[in-house]
Write a protein that binds this DNA or RNA. Structure first.
Lengths: 209, 209, 209, 209
DNA sequence: GATGAATGAGTATTCATTCAT
DNA sequence: AATGAATGAATACTCATTCAT
C-alpha cells in the first residue's frame, strides 16, 4: 500500500500488549495518510483501512481525530528531538549548535520524510510543537549573540525566520538533495549576520567531520 | 456586511453590466470569508449570504469553489503586482528594488490585510501564484548578483527563502507593526550576503525618503 | 402509505408556498411515525421517507428532531384545545365543564387517534404540554370546589390523578368504544367526591343532549 | 459505586455458585442504571461497568438487553408482591385489602425507589407485569363489590384506573411525602364509589394501627 | 467463565450541487 | 439571471454483539 518508512509507534510497542499494538498501528497509519493527503483531508476510515481495521476500532483508542493527531505530533516531536539532542550534547559554540541542529533535522527529514512532513503540517494545528521549537531555538540564538557570533538582536521575528528557512528547505527537497542542507545552514548563518564566506566555512567545518 | 476593506472586484466592475457586478460581489465576498475562516472552512453559502445572494446564484457564475478561488487569487495577484510595478519602474539598483518590492508588498498587507491573507493562503493551493512570484523575484536577484551587491548565487532555494521571510513577516504582523517591515527587508539583505550594518543602512536610505 | 388520518399541518398550509407545504409534510409524517413507533424509535429517515423526501431535506426545515417534535406537539395541543375551548364557552357549571372537556378530548381521540397518541407521548418529553394542561384543569377544579360540587381539596396530586384517568381511557380504547367515555367521566366525578349515582346522572344529562 | 439500595438479586444468590453471583451482580446493576437513566438510555457497558465486570461478560449470562430486563422485572415483581401478600394474609375486608395493598406498595416505593421505578418503567415494555397485577387486583375489587363496599361494577377500565392512580402517586412522590399515600388510598376508594368522608375514615383506621 | 479488543451496521448531520420556478 | 428548495453522497460517531485469548 504505502511507504517503506519506519513505523515509529509500532516499533515502540512491538513487545507490548495487543491493545498497544493496535493503537500504534493507527498512529503509524495516520502518519502515512497525513503525509500524503494532509491533515484536513485525512478521514477516519482512511486511517483504519490503512491499518487493516474496522472504522469503529478507531474509537476504542481515541476520542477523535484531534486527539490522535496530538499524539502523533507529540510522538514525532519527541522522536526527532531525541536525535538532535544526542548530537548537540557536546557542542558549545552557538553557530555550530545551530548548524548541527538544522542539519540533523534535515537529515531526519531525508530518512523519514513522512514524519517530518506530518510534523510540519501539524505545527499549524497544534501550537505546542511550534512554541517548543521557538523556546529551544531562542536559547541558542541568545547564546550566539552573547558569544559575539551573531550580529543581530534576537526577537520572535528572527526565530520564526530561521524556522521558516528550515521549512523551505523541506518543501523544496523532494528530490532528496543533500546539498540543500548545507545551503540552508549557510543561509541561516547569513541571516544571523555572518558573512557569506564565513558562513560557508563554518558550515563546512561543522558538517564535514 | 462587515469590513471596511476595499472591494477589489466591485470597484473594477462598477460600470459594467449586472452580470459582472454580481460576479464581482461573489469574488469580493469570497475574499472576506476566506481571509476570516480559511479556504477549506469557507462554504458556498457563506459567500453567497455575505454577498446578499441566493446560494444557487453561485453556480450561474462559477463551476465550483476551485474556479472561484482561482479567479480571486489571480485578480489579487494582478492588483497587488500593479502597485509594486508602479513603485519599481524607476529603480535600477537591485538591492533597492528588493527592498522596495518587499516593503510595498508589506504595506499593501497593512492596508488590505484580507487581500494578502487570501493570496498567501491561495498560494498553497494555486501554484501559478507562487511560480509567477518566483519568476519576477529571480530576475531582480540575478541583477543584484551581476551588480555585485549580493554575494550569493541565485537558485530556487534562495528565491523561496526570500518569499518565506516575507510570509513570516505577514504572519507575525497581526499587530500592524511597521517596524517589522524594516527588519524583514534587512533580514532579506543579510540572507543575500550583505553585512548587518550595511543592510540596515540600505534599508534606511531606501525607505526613509 | 399509511393512515386515513387527517393531515393537520398540510391542511393548514395548502395555500401557502412550497416551503411551508414541505415543512407541513414533515410535521404530519412525524405524527404518523411517532404514533406508530414512539418518540425515541422515530428516526429522521423514517420521517423523510414517509414524506417522500430526501433525508437532507429535513435539515432545511428543522434544527433537529427535538425542534420538530416541539412544533408537532405545540401544533397538536393548539388544535385539540381549540375544539375543547369551543365547546366550553357557554358552560358555567364546573362538573359539567369537567365532563364536557374530558368527553370532547376523548372524542377527538376517537376521530384522530394519532394526534392524541403523539400528544400523550410528547407530554413526557415536552413539559410545557403537561403544565399547560395542569393549569387549565386546576382552574375548573377550584371552581367546582367553590361551587360546592366537589368535596375534595384541589392539589397537584388531584389534578394529575384526573389526567391519569383520562390517559388510561385512551390507552384502553383501542376498540373505539364510546361507552368508555362516559365511564371515564363518571370515574373522574367519583374521584372528586361525587356519589356513584349522582355521577352517572350528571354524565348522562351533560352528554346526552 | 452509588446507592445504598439493597441488592435484591445479590442477596438471593449469596450462597450460590460464582456464576449465579455474577448474574445477580448484573441484574442489580441493571436496576440501578435503569432507575437513573431509563430503559432506552441504559447501555450494556453501563451495566457491566457498574458491576465491575467486562462488557463481554454480559453475554455469558443473557441473550440481550431484552432478556435481562425481563428477569429484572420479574424478580422485582415477585419480591414486591411477597411483601404485599404477607400483609394481606389475614385481611378479609376488601376495602381494607385495597388500602393495605396500595399503602404497602407505596411504602416499598419509599424504601426501594429504584425497584419500583424500574418496575413501573418495565411495565410499559413487559406486559406480563401489568397483566399479573390486573389479575390480583381484580379479585379484590370483585370481592368488595360482592361485600357491598364498592358501588361500581368491576371491569378492565376500573382496574387500570386504580393502577394509574397508584402510578401517579409514585411519580409525584419525589420528595418522599408519606401523606401522599393516604391521599392516594382515599382517592382510590372514592373512585370505587365510597364517599369522601367515609374514604378518609377507612384509610385512617386501616393505616393508623 | 471472564475478558476486552475488534467489529460493523445504524444514524445524525453537513454541504456542494442541481433544477424547477 | 436569480432564486432557494431539494438532493444525496460523504463522514463522524455509537454501541450491541462476537470471539480469540
Amino acid at each position: 500500500m504505502t511507504s517503506s518508512a519506519h513505523k515509529l509507534f509500532q516499533a515502540q510497542s512491538m513487545n507490548l500488549g495487543k491493545r498497544q499494538r493496535t493503537r500504534s498501528a493507527l498512529l503509524d497509519s495516520a502518519i502515512s495518510i497525513v503525509a500524503t493527503k494532509g491533515f484536513e483531508a485525512t478521514k477516519i476510515t482512511d486511517i483504519t483501512t490503512h491499518a487493516g481495521l474496522a472504522n469503529g476500532t478507531f474509537y476504542n483508542h481515541f476520542e477523535d481525530k484531534e486527539q490522535l493527531m496530538h499524539e502523533v505530533a507529540t510522538g514525532l516531536a519527541i522522536e526527532i528531538t531525541r536525535d538532535i539532542d544526542e548530537q548537540m550534547k557536546t557542542i558549545n559554540n552557538a553557530a555550530t549548535r545551530i548548524i548541527v541542529a538544522t542539519a540533523t533535522f534535515l537529515e531526519v527529514a531525508l530518512r523519514e520524510p513522512e514524519w517530518v512532513q506530518v510534523l510540519i503540517k501539524s505545527s499549524d494545528v497544534i501550537p505546542e510543537i511550534q512554541s517548543n521549537l521557538v523556546k529551544y531555538l531562542k536559547k541558542d540564538l541568545e547564546l550566539g549573540f552573547e558569544q559575539g557570533h551573531f550580529k543581530v538582536a534576537v526577537d520572535l521575528l528572527l526565530v520564526n525566520q530561521i524556522i521558516a528557512l528550515t521549512k523551505v528547505s523541506l518543501q523544496l527537497n523532494r528530490r532528496r538533495d543533500k546539498g540543500i542542507t548545507k545551503k540552508t545552514c549557510a543561509g541561516i548563518l547569513r541571516l544571523l549576520g555572518i558573512s557569506a564566506a564565513q558562513a560557508n566555512k563554518l558550515v563546512g567545518s561543522a558538517l564535514d567531520t
